[in-house]
Design a protein around this nucleic acid. Structure first.
Lengths: 216, 216
DNA sequence: TTGCCAGAGTGATCATTGTCACTGAAGTCG
DNA sequence: CGACTTCAGTGACAATGATCACTCTGGCAA
């Protein structure tokens, strides 16, 4: 893929032009096919990653393989983890997976560290990224801590709708993984939502009609 | 309380001396009594807060008053929230409470923003703080997402022990709040821990004997 | 076409947690 | 010393979610 300064300007509006040029000249463009992992659990990260195209799903995994959706990264966002590099974690770890075909730019940390002082807007970008991820993580935490499964499912479907529209090509099993529960539970709750008219179920996909009537 | 540059140097080892002087001259020292709130839920934050003395408990609250322990702030740490200022949040919010008598230094954001460029070590401190809180939040999230109540309780007691020693002056109700569950549940599980010899229960306090035998 | 398989639906049952309704027990303050 | 209040213990029961054991269905491949 060909990435221009204009493209970067649209994705990262606040950045000064010198920084954008540096990203283009120093960064490595990388394409990742749908379904592949950008970061697998337990791996060391030594580059910052900027999402240019596609959708990235960031999950947490525990020691025995259970996983858990944290948030999605859309074009114009960076992987905070790559920035914070929580690498030496003991038990649980993080994985990033391409939901669609994805294009990213990677920049070694050695370089981004020098950017911190050289480019004011890089620093701003890093702090904004932290803030954004922190907030998303808090929202995720809220839903786990305070909500029951049916509410969490509705919340999940709303989030899915935001990133991929009203027609979701996703299996019950996958939803169950993201919510860290069992497929049967998801099936039953989806059935209830269908009966209430909020969604329509078909094999391998779910059509969202209206989730707003459900709760709040 | 009298705060010297030496005191700051011990608490914030990495900081350049100019920054430490700036903190002393520009910051406001504030004492908060045990049990009082530094930040109450839903409030706007317009200053950074550096913890000098005492222990601060940071919790999340949802719309109907249920709360939830996020992490503790010890001397030498900053409130990331004050740095990220997630103020405009809709439903849930954050509160910070003094567990013991606390001394903090507050610095208006207007000032800290200029520090970002003026003092390299301030920027480093901010990023390190983000990273630290993010990791702690992830660990909290793990325990909620993957663990059952008895495991979470043990995890909680271990964390308490780290911040306040083997003798915990805390009621079952308070533990229940922190874990976002019911007092009865906590009572029952504590009883089980006592029977297994891991702790000793008394009125208004819990003595920790050995939590290591319990789970891994 | 037939057979196979992954995804989905469902009932039965169990374990965990939440809720209710109490009883005691230990301060504490007039 | 009562009278009150707060904290803790406990049994009974409800509700939620996890697990097991199936069946059913549509699509794909041999």
């Amino acid at each position: 893929m060909d990435i221009t300064t204009e493209k970067l300007a649209t994705l990262f509006p606040g950045m000064e032009s010198g920084l954008k040029e540096a990203i283009l000249s120093e960064g490595h463009v990388k394409n990742v096919k749908e379904g592949e992992l950008l970061v697998s659990s337990g791996q060391y990260i030594k580059s910052a990653m900027l999402v240019i195209d596609g959708l990235v799903k960031v999950s947490r995994e525990d020691e025995d393989g259970k996983e858990f959706l944290m948030y999605y990264l859309e074009p114009g966002s960076a992987c905070a983890l790559s920035l914070l590099c929580a690498a030496r974690s003991e038990k649980s770890a993080i994985s990033a997976k391409a939901v669609s075909d994805v294009t990213i730019i990677t920049v070694p940390f050695v370089l981004t560290e020098t950017w911190q002082t050289r480019y004011r807007t890089w620093h701003e970008f890093v702090v904004a990224t932290y803030r954004k991820r922190f907030e998303e993580l808090l929202i995720t935490l809220d839903s786990v801590a305070f909500k029951s499964m049916d509410e969490r499912l509705v919340f999940y479907l709303k989030r899915q709708m935001k990133v991929s529209g009203k027609l979701l090509a996703i299996s019950h099993q996958e939803i169950a993984n993201d919510l860290s529960t069992a497929r049967e539970v998801v099936s039953r709750l989806l059935k209830k939502l269908e009966q209430s008219g909020a969604i329509v179920l078909s094999r391998n996909h779910i059509e969202i009609i209206n989730l707003d009537k459900i709760f709040d």
